[in-house]
Amino acid sequence: MPEEPANNISGGVGAPAEFVPAEADTRAEAVVDELGQMYWRKAYGGRDAFECLVRTILSQNTSDVASQPAHDSLMERYSSGEARSASETRAGSEATRERSDLAESLAAAEQSELAETISSAGLYNQKSEMIIGAAERICEEFGGADGFDAFVTGGDPGEVRERLLDIHGVGPKTADCVLLFSGGRGGVFPVDTHVHRIARRMGLAPADADHEAVREHLERDVPAEKCGFGHTAMIQFGREYCTARKPACLDGPEACPLYDLCERVGVDEVEETVVDPADADAD
């Protein structure tokens, strides 16, 4: 079984999860069981909630390859209790800005310097504004990263999700990633572009379902303890087999390990064409 990629915005940490590929109650569960045979099986949780939030914001509209260096640079500059600004360093000043945690450090960050720090992630001006705004909000409402972490890990999941979605720049996928990878909440199946495409192409959700509708169908049909590794494994399956433009099934049934579980909505194997499931002919 392959190891989980080191650069995986949707995971990278977690303990082995119990996995019993028994008779599945739904096709969605059968798909996740097959993915569990192909990839890793982990129960997630334990990641610092604010860092997880920042990490996921950095990943928006970019790849892990681009967002990982941005995350590393941000942590190097701002996670230290004695982080110095670039202007202070250039001036040769020995002054330091004392920070009790990452949220406080980023709430006080100079936007242009943060943007420069995370430039490899793309949309760095927009993302730096989002991160500073989120940090200010978390310091104001929770007293900093530790208080936010306690809320995410111990609060009511519905309330946590609602509060997260109320932060500028935090959408459903970002909120769900924080709930899953920091809070360790079972029954949370974050939906990114891979999951959205695959679930509709396989017929696990309606062809015209938006991200929220796909999430609702998957969380309804996949057991809570399997949602976490189902999410990470489905992303990897989308990268290796069920790509947007040329899914493996176009090379024949034997090319895709999930062929028998898939309805291939929007895929014409004869003409070798692929369209978004929502655009597929209703016939």
Rank of each mutant, 00 (worst) to 15 (best):
Met1Phe: 10
Glu4Ala: 13
Ile9Glu: 04
Ser10Pro: 01
Ser10Leu: 05
Gly11Arg: 03
Glu18Trp: 08
Asp33Asn: 14
Glu34Pro: 04
Leu35Gly: 07
Gln37Gly: 13
Tyr39Met: 06
Tyr44Cys: 07
Gly45Asn: 05
Gly45Arg: 04
Arg55Asp: 03
Thr56Ser: 15
Ile57Pro: 01
His71Asn: 12
Ser73Asp: 15
Tyr78Ile: 07
Arg84Asn: 09
Glu88Val: 10
Ala91Asn: 11
Glu94Thr: 12
Ala95Asp: 15
Arg97Gly: 05
Glu104Gln: 15
Leu106Ala: 00
Glu110Arg: 14
Glu110Thr: 07
Lys127Cys: 01
Ser128Asn: 03
Gly133Asp: 04
Ala134Gln: 00
Gly143Tyr: 06
Ala145Ser: 15
Gly147Ile: 08
Phe148Met: 09
Asp149Cys: 11
Ala150His: 12
Asp156Ile: 11
Val160Arg: 04
Val160Asp: 01
Leu165Met: 14
Gly171Tyr: 00
Pro172Trp: 06
Pro172Asp: 13
Thr174Glu: 02
Pro190Arg: 03
Ile198Gln: 02
Asp210Ile: 04
Ala213Cys: 05
Ala213Gly: 07
Asp221Ser: 12
Pro223Trp: 06
Ala224Phe: 12
Lys226Arg: 14
Gly230Arg: 00
Thr232Ile: 13
Ala233Leu: 03
Ala233His: 01
Gly238Val: 06
Glu240Thr: 12
Ala244Cys: 09
Ala244Thr: 14
Ala244Ile: 10
Pro247Asp: 09
Pro247Gln: 10
Ala248Trp: 04
Ala255Lys: 11
Tyr259Met: 06
Asp260Ser: 14
Glu263Met: 12
Pro277Val: 06
Pro277Met: 08
Ala280Trp: 03
Ala282Asn: 11
Asp283Val: 13
